[in-house]
């Protein structure tokens, strides 16, 4: 019995064509020239290409804001919804359709101000999705108002005398939630790491929270100049369970730390530093259960099965009148 003919699966695989970067490009981006969003878009498109995500099985959900236009620029399914509400929408999608790859694109105002409740609880639910917070520290779309992550003292249209409130640190807050399972930080000006970190986030089973520090050339120009110009002011976090910087990048960014993403306490310390800016996977815990798993045990809910269940339920409440009254 010789069986050296090829299996159908091998042959069938040959028919599949690879997706290219162009397959993920949607509408022409309309961000300002010099905007950090573009780097993130390109990195995410590269990720989709590298992972060969079927465009029809991929959904990008966003709220409102500059960054939330992101889904329009992807040639996948997109959901450009309401200010602050991207996360609950994404959760509904994921619960309904665990087979879809769900990405959430949100901003500092969208996530950390109007959508704060959803952010905190999304971390708690830990549904399997990748959340990118494109944090430029300013409201751009509504034209220059201070955001919850604006640096102290920032003058804006709503704070002409400068802000008086300490900014929120999204990764510190996220790390404070017990169910956090993946927390990372990237910066738009090192696109290779945006790609690598988002890739690690995508691979993670559970909610991966990635804050991407991002420059706004329009309203917060020069915010990160010092760090862009001096690679020594960046702190790259390397670990076999996190990301590993390429040699080329490592030779530019020489400031490294071996950080085990299992170490939450160290992650919290790192998260609280802003100079140097830490970049990499701060925390990762694969053992936290995902919320969508409880649904749908191993049964097939055919109409007949559903009908059977319903009949059983109705039985519980059914009375058959005895009619005679008193007998």
């Amino acid at each position: 019995m010789t069986m050296d003919a090829a299996a159908p699966h091998c042959l069938l695989g040959m028919f599949d064509e690879d997706y290219t970067l162009d397959d993920y490009k949607g509408a022409e981006p309309r961000w300002c020239v010099g905007c950090g969003d573009s780097a993130i878009l390109a990195a995410v498109q590269r990720l989709c290409r590298d992972e060969q995500l079927a465009p029809e099985k991929t959904v990008f959900v966003s709220g409102i804001g500059c960054s939330s236009r992101f889904p329009h620029y992807m040639h996948t399914y997109g959901f450009h919804g309401l200010h602050g509400r991207a996360l609950p929408v994404a959760e509904g999608i994921k619960l309904q359709r665990p087979d879809l790859h769900v990405f959430v694109i949100t901003g500092d105002g969208d996530c950390c101000s109007i959508g704060t409740a959803h952010w905190i609880h999304a971390i708690r639910y830990n549904m399997d999705m990748t959340v990118l917070v494109l944090d430029n520290g300013i409201y751009g779309l509504t034209k220059n108002q201070a955001s919850p992550t604006s640096p102290l003292g920032l003058k804006s249209n709503t704070t002409p005398q400068g802000t008086v409130l300490e900014p929120i640190n999204p990764i510190s807050v996220t790390l404070g939630i017990r169910n956090a399972s993946f927390v990372a930080q990237a910066v738009d000006w090192i696109p290779e790491l945006v790609h690598d970190i988002v890739d690690a986030a995508f691979q993670h089973k559970g909610l991966s929270f990635v804050r991407v520090l991002q420059r706004c050339p329009e309203y917060l120009d020069g915010r990160y100049d010092a760090w862009v110009k001096d690679p020594g002011k960046m702190l790259l976090l390397n670990h076999e369970n996190g990301i590993q910087t390429s040699p080329a990048l490592a030779s530019v960014y020489k400031n490294h730390e071996i950080h085990d993403p299992a170490d939450r306490n160290r992650a919290r310390e790192i998260a609280s530093t802003s100079d140097p800016i830490p970049v990499g996977v701060l925390y990762r815990n694969q053992s936290i259960p995902c919320y969508e798993n409880p649904r749908g045990p191993d049964r097939l809910y055919t109409p007949d099965v559903v009908k059977g269940v319903l009949e059983k339920e109705l039985d519980r409440f059914t009375i058959q009148a005895v009619g005679g009254g008193g007998d």
Partner: peptide
């Protein structure tokens, strides 16, 4: 709000 947004997400993606 989240409850309604959640239902909308679920509806959008299927039944």
């Amino acid at each position: 709000i989240a409850a309604c947004a959640f239902a909308i997400g679920a509806s959008y993606a299927g039944k």
